[in-house]
Structures are given as structure tokens and as C-alpha cells.
Write a protein that binds this DNA or RNA. Structure first.
Lengths: 129, 129
DNA sequence: AAATAAGGGTTACATATGTAAACTATATAT
DNA sequence: ATATATAGTTTACATATGTAACCCTTATTT
């Protein structure tokens, strides 16, 4: 059952979010973006790119003047993977426990609760039909 | 707003869960537990204990024959901290997004949805009154 | 007493992560 | 042509993490 378990580090998330938003992008473009978003030096972005490439998170093709990087994993699968590993680790796999914790801590606004309520209500109705 | 951000590594979670369940415990007791639970050598448990102590996650008092370790942070605060950093990182802080993802992925059983539904319904009612 | 277990300290070592400089080669703008 | 920006490779270096051995001392057990 247990898929690969894709785990992105913080630095890697920055780059990935950027590429997921739009790709391909050259190193220079990413360097620019990271520079403004996080303040990284260009060498930092390069290093992270290289590591991600080695891990198979991103790929590139040779463009006219520079490599063009693109994601090799899609956001959904990473999000799912991280979510299930998080739920298992912290909440013993139970989403109910998570929600309960937040509710108790009063971390949910009225509108958030309404949103949740509707999500669930609709999902249940859909299931029923 | 942003509290300390308590982050436990995997190894640290093992020990903490054990101590949260019941404490204080001596190193030897923890070594036994970790040995069966995870297969760690005794030195491994020692090392992790030492690091956790340095980080202020656990403390100890001198018992009759050995130190007795106990947690210095409680489960709730760690869970909250990890939860909010997770939600921010992956779901831009939105629980709705998380739930939506799981619903879409059909990862929620009928009974889980009912549970969620009730949690939310009750929370809303409580708020209303 | 000799062997073993318990308690505690120090050292080790690989991989991961955050962060970056140095260096080389080439394309461009001044 | 010369300074600058781009593109890309290699090396660096601290901290974190997983995992563990080695060493010493003091209790226990056989």
C-alpha cells in the first residue's frame, strides 16, 4: 500500500511551487524568483536544483540557450503523500482527531466551519445518491 | 504570533510518545521499549535522549539508582505546532483545502465523514448559543 | 571472585539540508 | 575589446538526523 513517500524539504518546496505554477523555467528565471522570494544567492538555487534533479523531482530539456526545468512529480501526489504521512505520524491516521484538535483550540473561524460543513455535507449527499 | 515551532524528528517522536504515555522512565526502561518497538541499539536510545535533553524536550531527576526522564513539553502543544506548520506549508493554512483533497481522493469512509460532520455541526451549534 | 548487567560519558560516521563561494566558458552589451 | 551577465560544474561548510560503537564504573548475579 505504502507508495514511495515523496518528501520535499523546505527549500525544495520553494522551487517546486514555483515550477508547478508555471513551467518550464530556466535556472536564471528560478534564480531570480528565489532571490526575491527567499533571498537566496544564485548558487543556492543552483545547488537545490541539482539535488532535486538527482532525486528525480525535476527534469530538464536543452533549450535554445539554457536548460528548461520542469516538474517530474505533480503537486497532487506530493500533497497526498505528505498528508497521509502527517496524519499517520501525528494523528494516528485520523482526520477526525485533527479537526477535533483545531476545533477545540478554537482555531476555526465561523466561515471556515461553514466551509467544512458544506464540504462534508455535499460529499455525503453525493455518496448517498 | 508564531510560537517557537517545536519540531520533533522521527526518532524523537518515538521516545516522546513513550514518555507521554507514562513517565518518568529510566534510560534502561526506554532502551528496552525502543529495542522492541524499533530495534534500536541501546546506544542509539542514549544518544537520542541526550539530544532531546539538550533541546529542552525532556528533563530528568536523579532517582535512587538512575535518572528518571520526563517530558518538558506536552503532546498538545507539539501537535498544534506541527499541525499549523503543516497546514501552512502544504495547504496554505487552509483546513478546508485539506479536507477537500481527502474527500476528492475518496479517502474518507462513510463513518469518517459522519464523524467529521458531527464534530463540525456541534462546534457550530456551540458557537451559536 | 568472575561474569554480566546497568548507568553514564565520549566519539564516530553516513546522509540530509541549508546555504553559498570559486571557477570556467560563453554570450552580450557598452 | 572589455566589462558584465549567463550558464554550468565543483567544492565547501555548518547543523541535523539516524544509527551505533567504545569505554569506564558500579551494581548484581551465578
Amino acid at each position: 500500500m505504502k507508495e514511495k513517500e515523496i518528501g520535499l524539504s523546505n527549500s525544495e518546496w520553494h522551487i517546486m511551487e514555483n515550477l508547478w505554477e508555471s513551467s518550464p523555467k530556466t535556472a536564471t528565471q528560478l534564480i531570480k524568483a528565489m532571490e526575491t522570494e527567499t533571498g537566496w544567492a544564485k548558487s543556492t538555487t543552483k545547488t537545490v536544483l541539482k539535488r532535486m534533479e538527482k532525486k528525480g523531482f525535476i527534469g530538464y530539456r536543452e533549450g535554445e540557450k539554457a536548460r528548461e526545468y520542469y516538474p517530474l512529480i505533480n503537486r497532487e501526489e506530493v500533497v497526498e503523500s505528505e498528508t497521509s504521512s502527517f496524519l499517520n505520524r501525528i494523528y494516528n491516521g485520523s482526520l477526525g482527531l485533527l479537526v477535533n484538535t483545531l476545533v477545540k483550540k478554537q482555531d476555526l473561524s465561523e466561515s471556515e466551519m461553514e466551509e467544512l460543513y458544506n464540504i462534508i455535507k455535499e460529499a455525503r449527499e453525493r455518496k448517498q445518491s
